[in-house]
Amino acid sequence: MRLTTAISQDMRFQFRHGFYYVYAILSVMYIVVLRFLPDEMVHSALTLILFTDICTLGFFFIGAIILLERGQNITESLFVTPLRLSEYLLSKSISFLILSTLSALIVLVGAAIPVQNFLWFIWGLILSSVIYTLFGIVFATKAKHVNDYFVRALGMGLFISLPLLGHLGLFDTPLFYLFPTKSTLILLDVIGNAYSLTAKLYAAISLLLWTLVFAYLAYYRFEKHVRHPA
């Protein structure tokens, strides 16, 4: 009950702040772009779109949302109700996950992209979306305003995005397997390209572990800097 209340509020909040309209427009733009691209480029372009925007939108927005909630003193009043911090974090993650998934599916269907390994793909999309929202929360807890959030988060964000170089074929190293983004890229890419079962299993399991790591970090940082600030 508390969790569903929180999720529905977060979704309505996102709706009122234009998220759903913006992603409707963006999804259509992506569909148009994908439809005009030559066939052999479609899948890597799709992976790129998912990775830089649709799947990681939680990271992009969560800083501003937490700052707004803190600025309007909503956070402090939420935590003098029976709402648990875990429920709060879960609600933030799930609300973005829903937007990510909807937008991704609309683009897939709208651009009529042939799909394989769909369950692997969805697993990767869901966990990745959650991971990058939590990743953003880790940095949002100490940020003073939106620009500050991006300054804090962008360095680390760019660093963990290094495996993108491998995806673009510019530079690759096995070390990239230590990055959560490598697993994300694999599982976003499986709908168009063949990967070994080992690679898929590795990506699926490591994403689960990364989710737990970032959930712990986000919980710890939020507890320390926002909920009990002393």
């Binding site: 702040h17 913006v22 963006l26 925007d53 927005f61 707004l68 305003h145 939106v146």
Partner: peptide, 17 residues
Amino acid sequence: NKVEGLAFSKLLGIMYL
């Protein structure tokens, strides 16, 4: 507010399409 600003800034990218 800034949250809405951030959402709209996504549309800004379209300006450069």
